[in-house]
Computed example of a mutant assay.
Amino acid sequence: MKNIGGGAVLDLAGIEKGFGGGVVLDGIDLTVPQGQFVALVGPSGAGKSTLLRLVNGMHLPDRGTVRTLGADPAGCSRRELRALRARVGFVFQQFGLVGRLSALENVLMGALATLRWPRYGVMTYPRALRERAVEQLDRVGLADKRFQRCDTLSGGQQQRVAVARTLLQRPELILADEPVASLDPAASVLVLDTLKRISAEDGISVVCSLHQIDLALSTADRVVALRSGRIVLDEPAATLPEERLRAVYEETSARHD
């Protein structure tokens, strides 16, 4: 596991969460230090997406406490929650881009929360911000595509535009919810390698939910596996045997046969 500096950017203690009478998360304790890349794995319905949404206050816990970058989302005012979310980047499976707009304008939209007035067109954004947006596109290998409509880009390219948009926020923590689920294997590796490199270069913690065992082991510093709303495995990726991680899925499958 890499040498991590700084304190915890995320601390969940005794978290319980349910919907419609069903338990989704049950007794979750999880601490993530600054700069660590955590792969959150487990079968569908294990509670991965719910856990990520608790971190930035999209959901609130029924019991337990969440500390995200030192703040409790449940105790934040609307203004404080907006400020917290500005420090937490979120990369979704479905990209969330505006297809008719260029890659550059989609990246610039990541700064809208910090601007006083709505913007229409690339040139309505401050020059310094435009330059930063191009820098972020360059970091994900897409500076040459900055004026191309996003709906003409491949899925992997679109997801990298989404990563660049997140980076424009200058986040201290990045949450990624199945960011490569809809991508082919080559594009998946490229997107995750990009996130991994940026995490290492900038010291940004990443918590990334994944289904692909091989990608979790090859990308992450640490693997946390959920099953039926509980953490059943939490180990450094470098020393975790693949068969132990695969068993998390196989045991669930066996119970449903």
Rank of each mutant, 00 (worst) to 15 (best):
A113P: 11
G20I: 06
A39N: 04
R227N: 04
L168C: 07
L69E: 11
S44N: 15
L69I: 07
V23E: 07
L167D: 04
T50A: 13
L10A: 04
G121R: 03
V24C: 07
G35D: 13
L173E: 01
V88E: 06
P33H: 08
V98R: 07
L245P: 00
S199Q: 14
A74G: 14
D177C: 13
P171Q: 01
D193G: 05
G121I: 04
T252C: 08
L142R: 07
R127N: 01
V66E: 12
D234K: 03
Q148D: 01
N56D: 14
E135Q: 14
G70L: 13
T68D: 04
F90M: 15
G155C: 09
G35T: 09
R160D: 11
G27N: 05
T152F: 09
G75H: 00
L69V: 10
R197Q: 14
I231N: 10
V98E: 08
L217D: 03
M1F: 05
G75A: 12
A186W: 04
S77D: 02
Y249L: 09
L108M: 13
V66P: 14
R246S: 10
R139P: 05
F92D: 05
V66R: 12
G7I: 02
V180N: 07
L167C: 01
L240T: 11
G156P: 02
T65I: 10
D234T: 12
G64I: 01
T252K: 14
L97M: 12
E172W: 02
V107F: 14
V140H: 03
I204V: 15
